[in-house]
Design a protein around this nucleic acid. Structure first.
Lengths: 357, 357
DNA sequence: GACGGCTCTGACAACGTTGTCAATACGCAC
DNA sequence: GTGCGTATTGACAACGTTGTCAGAGCCGTC
C-alpha cells in the first residue's frame, strides 16, 4: 500500500479568502487594502493589515495578472554585449520592481532582426506585461518606439541625450555629451593637443553624443579638429585595438586617445603595449563607463562613471509611476543623469617622465 | 458560419475559446493539443493546430500558471560577482526556457543572509515557480538544498564535482578538478617546478576542486607541494593582486602562478606589471574560466574554457524534464561537463627569452 | 420623518486556462 | 446483435484575484 505523497506543501499558502475570514470582512475589502485603494475605514484597514501580517499573506501574482487590467510585471529589453552594463541595468530595475511589488521579465534580444517590434508586442501580450523598460540601442530606434506607442504598449526609454528630448515619449536620459566634454577637457588641460577619438557603434545614440562632447571641447580650447584622428568603429575591444593601430601609424601620432567606452580603451591599451608605447608617459588613454575592469587594467583607466544601476532604477520607477493611476495628480517627469569624470592612471601630463610623476 | 477576422490588439488577443470555435472542438481539446497530451486523434490535432497558427494563438501564461498544478515558469538563483558568468548562465537558462515554453524569473541574492532558505521558498510560492536552477555557491550548501527538497521545491544544481555526486539531488556537474590538473600539467611541461596557487572563495566548492587538480598534477610529476606557494583568497582581482605580491616577496619566487579564476589571474598580471616582472618570460600566469577579458588582457591569458552557457542550458532542461511527467519513462540523468585547456600568451617555457619565442 | 448624498462594504461575475469525470464513438470478440 | 474495453471528446468546476454595481449605514437638510 503505497502512501501517496500529498500535494506539495506549496499549495497551502494563504489566499485572500483566509485573510478575509480572519479579519471578518469580505474578499473585496481585503483586495482594497492590499492595493491601497481609497475608501476603506481606518480601523478596517488596520484589522485587515493585521490579518495579512499574521498569515504572512502575499497576493498571487498569476491570479492578479490574470484578473486585473494592468498586470504587475514589467519587461526589460536589452541588446548589449557588455555584461557589466547589463547586470547593472538588471539590478537597478529589479530593485525598483521589488520596491513596488512588480515582477520582472528579462528579454535579451537581437536588435538587428527585422520583426523586433512584433517580437516585443508578442512578449508583452503573452506574458501580460504592464510595460517595458527599453535599454539602448532599442530605446533609440524611433520607428520601434512609435510602433510600441501606437500599439498601446507603455514603456520608458533609457537614452543618451544632452537634455530632455520632450518628444512625447517617456525616458530617462544620460548626458554623455557633457561627460565626454569633461574627459576631453581633462586631456587638453594635461597639455594634449592631438587627441585621437574612437567612435562607438553607430546604432547607439551615445556615440554621436560622445563625439559631440569631444568636438565641442576642442572648439572651446581652439584646437582644430583633425579628421585623421577620428576613427569609426564599434563599442568593442577589437575595434579599440584596430583603431589605435591606425592612429599609431600616422606620421603625426596623437599623444592621447579617447575611446568611446572602456572596452575600446582596453583595446587601445593592449595595442599600446603591443607597440611598446608606454602608458601614460608616451600616450594618455581615457575610456567611458567605469566598468570594473577600468580599475583593474594596468594602468587603471581614466573614465566617466555612469550611475547605471541608479539610472535603470529610475527608469523602472518612472514606468511604474506611469502605470499606476497617479493619486497625487502629479505626472511622472523625465529625469537626467550626468556621468562623472574619474581620473586614474592612464592619463598624464604630456611629456612627463615616469620618475617625475 | 461567419468568420470574424480581428486585428490583434493588446486588448483583443485570441484565447483558447477562439481557437476552439474556429477548429470546431471544445476548449479542452485545444488545451490537450497545446500541451501535447496523448489521446487526440491525428486529424483533430491537425485541425486545431491549423487554427492555432491562423490565429497566432499563444496561451496566456498567467491563466495557465494560475490553474495548473505545475506552473510554466522557473527561477534562476545566483549570487556571483562575475557578470560574465551570470550573463552566460542567464542566457543558457533562457534558451532552454524559450525552447520549452517556460518563463524565467531571475533572482540575484545574497548567499550570506541567514534566512535565504525562507526567501527562496517565498519566491517560489509567490511567483508560483515550478522549480529553481541553483548556481554556485547556493547550489553547494547542503543544508539549503535539503531544506528546499524537504519543502517539496524542485531544483537542479550547477555544481563543481569530479563525478556525479549521486547524493539524490539532481545536478549538472563541472569537472573543475580535471581541468585544473590539465592547467598545472601544462605549466609543468613548460618546465615550471615552483608553481604558485591562488585559491578562490572557500564558499565555492570549485575552489577545493581546483586545488585538488593542482595538487594531484604535482604529485603525478613528483613535484613536492610547497605550502608557502599556496595562498588562500577570494575569486577577486584584489586577492589575485595581493596573493601575487606575497608570492613575489618569497625568497624562492615561483616561476608560474595558477590563479583559480581569470579575475585572480588578472590581479596577478597587474601585480607583475607593478613589480616590473615580465610576463610570460619571467613569470607564467594561468587563469580559469575563459572570460572575455582573458583574451583581452596583455598578454592574453592561458585558461580553462567552461561552456557555461551550455551547462546552464542543460541544467534548465534537466529541471524542466524533471517537472514534466516523463512520457518515455526515462528519468532525467545528471550530466557532467569538462572545461578545456586554452593556451594563450601568458604562459611560456621557463627561461625562454622574449626574442627566442 | 423622508430624502439626498456621502462613505464604506459586500455579492457576484469574470479573467483564460487546466483537472475531473462523464459521455460518446469505435473496434473487436463472442 | 450484444457486451466490453479503449480511444477520443466535451461539460463543468475551479484556480485567486479584481471590476462592477448595488446595498448598508450615516449625516444633515428640508
Amino acid at each position: 500500500m503505497a502512501q501517496r505523497i500529498q500535494r506539495q506543501t506549496l499549495v497551502n499558502r494563504p489566499t485572500i479568502k483566509d485573510v478575509a475570514r480572519r479579519a471578518n470582512v469580505s474578499l473585496k475589502t481585503v483586495s482594497r487594502v492590499i492595493n491601497s485603494e481609497a475608501s476603506v475605514r481606518e480601523d478596517t484597514r488596520e484589522r485587515v493589515q493585521r490579518a495579512v501580517d499574521e498569515l504572512n499573506y502575499a497576493p498571487d501574482q498569476a491570479a492578479r495578472n490574470l484578473r486585473s487590467a494592468t498586470s504587475h510585471a514589467i519587461g526589460l529589453v536589452y541588446d548589449n554585449p557588455n555584461p557589466y552594463y547589463v547586470i547593472s541595468v538588471q539590478n537597478g530595475v529589479l530593485a525598483a520592481c521589488h520596491d513596488q511589488g512588480y515582477g520582472l521579465q528579462i528579454h535579451p534580444c537581437d536588435s538587428s532582426v527585422p520583426d523586433l517590434a512584433d517580437e516585443l508586442r508578442d512578449l508583452v501580450q503573452r506574458t501580460r506585461l504592464a510595460g517595458l523598460v527599453l535599454a539602448p540601442p532599442m530605446s533609440e530606434r524611433m520607428e520601434l518606439v512609435r510602433y510600441l506607442a501606437d500599439n498601446g504598449i507603455k514603456f520608458v526609454r533609457i537614452i543618451s541625450a544632452a537634455e530632455d528630448p520632450n518628444d512625447g515619449y517617456p525616458c530617462v536620459y544620460v548626458d554623455d555629451r557633457d561627460a565626454a566634454y569633461d574627459i576631453t577637457e581633462h586631456l587638453i588641460q594635461l597639455g594634449h593637443q592631438r587627441i585621437g577619438f574612437l567612435w562607438g557603434g553607430a546604432e547607439h545614440r551615445s556615440s554621436p553624443e560622445r563625439f559631440k562632447g569631444y568636438e565641442s571641447a576642442l572648439k572651446d580650447y581652439d584646437i582644430p579638429l583633425d579628421k585623421k584622428l577620428v576613427i569609426p568603429g564599434d563599442y568593442s575591444f577589437d575595434d579599440g585595438f584596430r583603431g589605435a593601430r591606425r592612429l599609431f601609424a600616422l606620421r603625426d601620432r596623437p599623444t592621447a586617445i579617447f575611446g568611446s567606452n572602456d572596452e575600446i580603451a582596453a583595446g587601445v591599451l593592449a595595442a599600446a603595449k603591443a607597440n611598446n608605447i608606454e602608458v601614460p608617459y608616451e600616450l594618455s588613454i581615457a575610456g567611458f563607463e567605469d566598468s570594473p575592469f577600468s580599475k583593474q587594467s594596468w594602468p587603471a583607466l581614466t573614465t566617466a562613471k555612469q550611475a547605471t544601476e541608479d539610472i535603470a532604477r529610475h527608469a523602472a520607477l518612472r514606468l511604474i509611476a506611469e502605470l499606476k493611476p497617479s493619486p497625487s495628480g502629479s505626472a511622472p517627469v523625465n529625469r537626467g543623469f550626468s556621468p562623472q569624470l574619474v581620473i586614474r592612471d592612464s592619463t598624464a601630463r604630456i611629456g612627463l617622465k615616469a620618475k617625475e610623476k
